[in-house]
Design a protein around this nucleic acid. Structure first.
Lengths: 222, 222
DNA sequence: TTTTATTGATAGTATTACTACTATATTTGT
DNA sequence: ACAAATATAGTAGTAATACTATCAATAAAA
């Protein structure tokens, strides 16, 4: 994918000061991705981050309320980016089957290229979404945060794909559940492939996570 | 299910002192389930727990190394209990299709009865497995803990069910991934049904999580 | 009855997750 | 060019968390 000259728009409620508005802010975002990947979300602190960016804790706190909000910001950025890829990738494709196939590839295939956005390493971001994003969603604050619209992008993606499913088979009973379980399952299976290889049915020729879900979805929708 | 006079055996490496060995230990386990459910794993502390059981922090630390190990203990207990239900439920059933159906019900249906074990409220335990157990698996310690065998019960369950899948269709390519994504997906979809109802394809007559996965699995295995 | 194990009570430490305040440095408006 | 606003660095401080250590009291086992 070529380098893009557009920005991903993120809800201003997620930050105190827009990290896109300054070099330091961009550094906070890019270095936090690297640090969270390295230390895990539990081990990650604003103190360590501020050291990494040669700044102070108080400065980081001027951008994000706390590390949970920062992680939520990264999560929203990720899903907005995925939605952008979905819109771009399925544009002008007539056959819904073909659109679904492309969309499933985007959702289930590993992220290997990192060049579309300047300060965000998308490969690393994908990695922390795999291994850390569950901690964002499984919170006591989930209902408040859902009300504030922090998950609308994610839900939009689910709706977008289930619309394609309904286009292919209007009688299929569970389009939303099929898609959301595919999206989350793909991340989960990637994590398993890294840590529980015995639970992964590998094949030499193809990426098994991707082909498993493609097979599963098309079989269900049929 | 009737009250059982058997114990779930848990790896001794999960605790410092077996909580089954004393009344206080059992109280630690039962009250921690209630507190984790109430406060969430992040809000839960050994200090609050010790207050709840009218004891002290140091006493709780004599049973479990930290709250992560306690949650891991509960998770292992839960999966052992599920495995017991699977063995018991599919015993003496000849047809693999029927065995798979029963197994899927056990895995995907909500837990409503609480009476098999004295000090453990299985309904609440299921609830915290739904909303908190991801925090146990998504850790930097995962590989060490996997090596120590803390996930063998879970993997046994996956293998047990994928064996049935292979019995039905020896040519199906992804038995392990199908089962593990069903097990985890069912928990995930339960959480979604509680917090993102718009992503759930409800039907009046049946439990949609359970029927979605039953439909999905049988369609895939064909 | 002595030993041993179990628990309670208290204290203490390092780290985390913040909040508040001040002093510069930089940018911006006029 | 200068005053005003803004951004950042630096320091300090607090409450809570996640422990560890020690010691006394008590109950159970040898």
């Amino acid at each position: 994918m070529e380098r893009l000259f557009l920005n991903i728009a993120i809800s201003p409620e997620l930050y105190l000061k827009n990290p896109e508005s300054s070099e330091l802010g961009k550094k906070i975002v890019s270095q936090s991705i690297m640090l969270i990947d390295e230390l895990g979300f539990e081990g990650f602190t604003f103190k360590k981050l501020s050291k990494q960016i040669s700044s102070t804790e108080s400065t980081v706190y001027r951008y994000f309320e706390n590390k949970h909000m920062l992680m939520l910001y990264l999560t929203c950025w990720y899903w907005s980016w995925v939605e952008y890829k979905l819109v771009f990738g399925t544009h002008n494709i007539k056959l819904p089957q073909e659109r679904l196939k492309i969309a499933l590839d985007i959702i289930t295939k590993p992220v290997t290229e990192d060049n579309s956005f300047f300060h965000i390493n998308e490969v690393l971001l994908h990695q922390i979404i795999i291994s850390e994003s569950a901690k964002v969603i499984y919170t006591k604050e989930i209902d408040n945060e859902n009300e504030k619209g922090f998950y609308t992008v994610y839900k939009q993606i689910v709706n977008r794909l289930s619309d394609i499913v309904k286009e292919i088979n209007p009688n299929y009973e569970y389009p939303h559940m099929l898609i959301s379980s595919t999206i989350d399952g793909a991340l989960h299976q990637r994590y398993f492939s890294q840590h529980f290889p015995s639970l992964i049915d590998n094949s030499k020729s193809k990426d098994c996570v991707s082909s498993f879900y493609t097979d599963l979805v098309f079989n269900a929708v049929k």
